[in-house]
Each structure stands twice: as C-alpha cells, then as structure tokens.
C-alpha cells in the first residue's frame, strides 16, 4: 500500500493576529479528486501555497507524495503540478511559447508527455500562435492546465481553476479533470462554487481557516437531518420576509428558483402555505426538498 498522495497534520498559518489556517488536518488518497470548498478568504490559497512549498507553515506538518514539505521541498517540486488562482501565464507569449517555456522549466518536451495532455492541448492547438493574453477565460484555463501537467506530475494542485469562468467552460473543465483522474493523477482542487462539489470523490468544507466537515459529497448531504422545504410563488421577496416571521421556521434563504426553509420538528407545511395565501401571496408551492452542499455549508457557517 502506497502512502496517501497528501497527508496534512494540524497545519496552521497566522498573518499577524489573523489565523489564516487553524489546525487543518486531512488526507488525500492516491487517485482521488479531493475538493476544498469554501468562499474567498477561507484559507484555501494559503493551504495550497504551503502544500506546494511556496510558503512555510507556522505549525503542523504535511507530506506530499510521501515527502515532507519542509525537508524535501526540492524533491516535491519535481512531482507536483500547481495551477495558482490567477492563471500564471505570460500574456505576451503565444500559446506554443508558453508551453515550451514551461516544458523547459521542468526539463521535458511537449512530445514526451503528449499522451497525458493531448485531450486538453488539442482544444487549444488551433490557437497555438495566438498570444495567451488574447485568449478567452476558458482557453486561458486550459492552457494553464496544460502547463501544469507538462511534466506528468503525480499530484496536481488546482487553486480555484474555475473562478470567473463561465458555466460551460466550468463543466468542460471538470470533464477534463475526471479524465486525468483515470490516468492515475491525485488531484486537490479548490472552488468557491458549491455546485462543483458533487464532481469530487471527497470534499472538505472550509471557512475562516477551519475545516467544517469532510466526507463524500453524499455523506455531507446526508448529514443534514433537519426537515428542509422549498417555497416559491409570486413576489419572492415578500414570501421570504413573511416566512421568516413564522415560529417553526429556523432559517429561510433564497435558493435558486425557490426559497429553502430549514424547519423545526413541529413544522406544519400546510399551515405555512395557508398563512402565506391568507397574506395575499399567489401561486404558492411548498414541497419537501433534499439538501444540497450549499444548505450544509450555510448550516455549518451558522453553528461555527
């Protein structure tokens, strides 16, 4: 049994009085796609920068690909691919020149590891003489991914690869990640988009430098035990404020086309529907619904 791809043990990092990371502990298994889900400022990027040996932690220890991040950082750098939050490309160089430069950086050529990156590279190959600065967000993202894969790393670190990218490019990107996983890569990926969590094998919810929960996406969702309802109708804002005044409603918040209601055990949906209709709201639909990652995150943020 090989060691886990990443082992994190009580990693902490402070910036002055601010605890950016507060005792983070989790493991990423071999061949796993592990998602780190949390908003801006949760500490995701700081954790990434510590794991890729860019900065030192203030406490705790971690191993990447079986090597210690403090003592073996030079060896680790050979084995990992890192794609930072802002796509780190040279905008004044062409697609091809960017790739060749990053290949030289890792002492390889594009041809050597062509198999691994071919599915991604083929999508940007038609634009290979275009300057990277002139590419669309989705294209930049693919190029940056190619550059971080060029040396066939064992462990891939993707820090918010889909931030600021439109929904289509985002789902294409996840398809590519799952292809890479089949080729044996272990991937740690962070995202502020909760809807992407379901694509991961396991996820950790992180906020304010602390892990809120770690589980499979289904496991996380199944831990949501409170009754959850979705309510919709005309004048959604009015419904929101009216529902909140009800006694048995623990929380009510907008959730896409409907508002989600976190209810207590004594909640009576029929009663609420009646109340709302009596208050003049039309087309009220009120149904029990299944919690999503975001519902869990909201609940955990409140209890934090």
């Amino acid at each position: 049994m090989r060691q886990d791809a990443i082992e994190i043990n009580g990693i902490s990092k402070n910036y002055g009085a601010l605890k950016a990371l507060d005792g983070i502990t989790f493991n990423v298994g071999r061949g796993e796609v592990f998602g780190l889900i949390g908003p801006d400022g949760a500490g995701k990027s700081t954790l990434f920068r510590i794991l890729v040996t860019l900065i030192d932690s203030d406490g705790g220890s971690a191993k990447v690909d079986g090597m210690d991040i403090l003592n073996d950082y030079h060896s680790i750098r050979n084995k990992i691919g890192y794609m930072p939050g802002k796509f780190s490309l040279y905008p004044d160089l062409t697609v091809e020149e960017n790739i060749n430069f990053f290949a030289a950086l890792f002492h390889v050529t594009l041809e050597q590891n062509y198999d691994l990156i071919a599915p991604i590279y083929k999508q940007i190959e038609p634009f290979k003489t275009r300057r990277a600065g002139k590419l669309s967000g989705g294209m930049k993202q693919k190029l940056a991914l190619c550059c971080s894969l060029i040396h066939k790393p064992d462990v891939l670190f993707l820090d918010e690869p889909t931030t600021g990218v439109d929904a289509v490019s985002r789902s294409e990107f996840w398809d590519m990640l799952l292809e890479l996983q089949k080729k044996g890569l272990s991937i740690l990926v962070s995202t502020p988009y909760m809807d992407e969590a379901s694509k991961c094998n396991r996820i950790a919810l992180i906020n304010g430098g602390k892990i809120l929960d770690i589980n499979t996406p289904d496991g996380i969702v199944n831990n949501f035990k409170e009754p959850l309802y979705a309510v919709s109708g005309t004048n959604m804002y009015g419904i929101l404020t009216a529902t909140r005044q009800e006694k048995e409603v623990v929380d009510c918040y907008p959730f896409g086309a409907a508002h989600h209601i976190v209810a207590s055990e004594n909640f009576n949906p029929e009663f609420l529907k009646q109340t709302l209709e009596e208050r003049g709201f039309k087309n009220i639909e009120l149904n029990k619904t299944k919690a999503g990652i975001e519902d869990v995150f909201i609940k955990l943020m409140h209890t934090q």
Binding site: R49, V52, T53, L54, H74, R77, N78, I80, Y82, P84, G85, K86, F87, S88, L89, Y90, P91, F102, L105, F106, H107, C147, S148
Partner: peptide, 11 residues
Amino acid sequence: TGTMDVLLVSP
C-alpha cells in the same frame, strides 16, 4: 502576475 509562483515551484 503570479508567474513567479510557478517558477519557484518548478524544480
């Protein structure tokens, strides 16, 4: 621009 991060992380 952040490219230094990638340079530093390379071998």
